[in-house]
Amino acid sequence: MASRLAVAVAVAAPASSPSPVGTVAPPRVALRRGLPPTWHALRALPRSRGAAVVCQAQGGQDTAIQVPDVSKSTWQSLVVESELPVLVQFWASWCGPCKMIDPIVGKLSKEYEGKLKCYKLNTDENPDIATQFGIRSIPTMMIFKNGEKKDAVIGAVPESTLVTCIDKYVGGR
């Protein structure tokens, strides 16, 4: 039953958006997989959340990485004409899971430096681009190569899920 519902949801999604979305990781399935390292720490020490945050801050470099913005005006030059594969994180100001995935994308942008470009696009400020690519659920991470959309990952998935998707188009870190 659950799997049927999942399939139904997946089938329904293309119908609701004019442009078809590439391979989609169902949020429910993805969310059951292992937690990214950062959040394991948070779960392991629920009462020491402050300490966990402090440790994060001290670790600093990873969480400090800012993913640059892409907008409608820079889409052509940064994404379409990019010589490297591009990952675009579609986000919105008050989307909770977006705050969770942002440092992960930042970390990966550093790890894949020279092989992958990473950007984030605010859907409220660039609705045309979001609509063009059939964005519905936020966050959505899309992979572009040679200016073409190749893949999409929906929801705040674990780092490993993103890595698996990226490696299909980049060939490893």
Partner: peptide
């Protein structure tokens, strides 16, 4: 609520907006 309550707080703020 999420183990990371920031997620919860942000969503509630978004709903309020």
């Amino acid at each position: 609520f999420c183990a990371d309550k920031t997620v919860t707080a942000v969503v509630i703020k978004g709903l309020a907006d």
